[in-house]
Amino acid sequence: MKKIAIIGSTGSIGTQTLDVVSNHPDQFQVDALAGGSNISLLLEQVKKFNPRIVSVGTAELADEIRPLLPAGTKLYHGQEGLIEVAAGSNADMVVTAVVGSVGLRSTLAAIEAGKQIGLANKETLVTAGHLVMELAAAKGVPILPVDSEHSAVFQCLNGESIREAANITLTASGGSFRDLSRDQLTHVTVEDALKHPNWSMGAKITIDSATMVNKGLEVIEAHWLFGVPYDQIQVLLHPESIVHSYVEFVDGSIIAQLGTPDMRVPIQYALTYPERRPSPGGRLSLAKIGQLHFREMDYARFPCLRLAFECGRIGGTAPTAYNAANEIAVARFLNKEISFLEIESIIEKVLEEHKVVAGPDLEAIEAADAWARVRAGQL
């Protein structure tokens, strides 16, 4: 029985992780859950999975939920709560499913405690990849990717040497506006942006998919996960989201991972690795699909992806500023304070003003993150 802790249990990845757990009740036990502000859903999860430890976003929410929890349940809140769920639980594996850089300290705490990591919080590696990977190596902690693209690359490299990989290609659906020109993006709405053609994801990631920031974050994450230089990472538009990513080797051979666009598959693979289990998802029929389509990435059409490559190559706190500026810009767009195209202009302006710190420690990373958030809110 593998004990699981989930940071971000009420979000898209968190709920799908619990769906996987439900389908294998003899394999997994939920030891700790950290939700945010969705108290009603968190209470449903507590009732079903009976975790020992629960955490919520604020002290006020903790006061609200406390009398509704089963006797003996340990309750925490805020950043302390995330760290307690990550490092203070009896979990063998911590699934970091929270969105944003808020997951960094709890992920580091879980690694320090020797917990296996199921990584869905890409911002952790984007903002502090050097710190996370160095600590994981020192502690002998495996970091198993949950994102479909990184899970695909991880599977393609099974039994292979990364030294023999010529390049890694991450596929991108193109998001809600993949068939629109830049001129047509001028008047798109929040409601339009949230209609992803392939995947069921949370609001923030869905917007990131439309701007291609999500793919930019994944490029930086892939650099750290697989130790591959940016010149060996490519992005290809693939509208069907069937080929999740692939690896080309030095002999010209290509190994790709295919499947339906169902996040439960990579989640389950991370939970059960190195074994595989039957999945609740539907089966892929290439005969029914008939054709798969691919297009070269247009970096003029998707400038946020270009910026991600630039920040990754610069290193230091540049990716931190990129991510923080985007989080604020997306929140402002979702609140209908700015237009869709202003997301990318805010990111670019923040990066132009940011003074990069090379080889930053955690304090420098958090300082850069805080500065970028304030500046992105002002622009």
Results as ranks from 00 to 15, higher is better:
Lys3Val: 10
Ile4Phe: 01
Ile6Asn: 01
Ile6Ala: 02
Gly8Phe: 10
Thr10Gln: 01
Gly11Ile: 05
Gln16Gly: 11
Gln16Ile: 05
Leu18His: 05
Val21Leu: 06
His24Ala: 06
His24Gln: 06
Gln27Asn: 14
Phe28Ala: 09
Gln29Gly: 11
Leu33Tyr: 00
Asn38Gln: 03
Asn38Lys: 01
Ser40Glu: 13
Leu41Glu: 08
Leu42Ala: 00
Glu44Tyr: 00
Glu44Ser: 13
Gln45Leu: 00
Phe49Pro: 00
Phe49Arg: 01
Ile53Tyr: 04
Ile53His: 07
Val54Thr: 01
Ser55Lys: 03
Ala59Pro: 01
Glu60Gln: 07
Leu68Pro: 07
Leu69Cys: 02
Leu82Arg: 12
Ala86Trp: 04
Ala91Leu: 05
Val98Glu: 08
Leu104Tyr: 06
Ser106Met: 02
Leu108Met: 09
Ala110Gln: 03
Glu112Ser: 13
Ile117Asp: 06
Lys122Asn: 10
Leu125Tyr: 07
Thr127Ile: 15
Thr127Ala: 08
Leu131His: 02
Val132Tyr: 01
Met133Tyr: 04
Leu135Tyr: 04
Ala138Asn: 13
Pro142Met: 07
Ile143Gln: 10
Pro145Phe: 06
Pro145Gly: 11
Val146Gly: 12
His150Phe: 10
Ala152Ser: 14
Gly159Tyr: 04
Arg163Cys: 02
Glu164Asn: 13
Ile168Asp: 06
Thr169Ala: 11
Ala172Ser: 11
Leu180Cys: 07
Ser181Ala: 04
Leu185Gly: 10
His187Cys: 04
Lys195Ser: 03
His196Asp: 12
His196Ala: 02
Pro197Ser: 10
Pro197Lys: 14
Met201Pro: 05
Ile205Lys: 13
Ala210Trp: 12
Val213Cys: 06
Glu218Pro: 14
Ile220Lys: 06
Glu221Val: 06
Leu225Met: 14
Gly227Phe: 02
Gln232Ser: 11
Gln234Asn: 15
Leu236Tyr: 11
Leu236Arg: 14
Leu236Gly: 11
Leu237Trp: 10
Glu240Met: 03
His244Tyr: 05
Ser245Met: 05
Val250Trp: 03
Val250Pro: 00
Gly252Asn: 08
Ser253His: 03
Val265Leu: 15
Glu275Ile: 07
Pro278Ile: 12
Leu286Gln: 01
Gln291Thr: 15
Arg295Trp: 13
Asp298Lys: 02
Pro303Gly: 01
Ala308Ile: 13
Glu310Gly: 02
Cys311Asp: 10
Cys311Asn: 11
Gly312Ile: 04
Gly312Asn: 09
Ile314Ala: 06
Ala318Asn: 08
Pro319Glu: 13
Asn323Gly: 11
Ala324Cys: 01
Asn326Asp: 15
Ile328Asn: 11
Ile328Gly: 07
Ala329Ile: 06
Ala331Tyr: 09
Leu341His: 04
Ser345Met: 05
Ser345Asn: 09
Ile346Leu: 07
Glu348Ser: 14
Lys349Ala: 09
Pro360Asn: 02
Leu362Lys: 01
Glu366Lys: 15
Asp369Thr: 12
Asp369Gly: 08
Ala370Tyr: 13
Val374Pro: 07
Arg375Glu: 03
Leu379Phe: 08
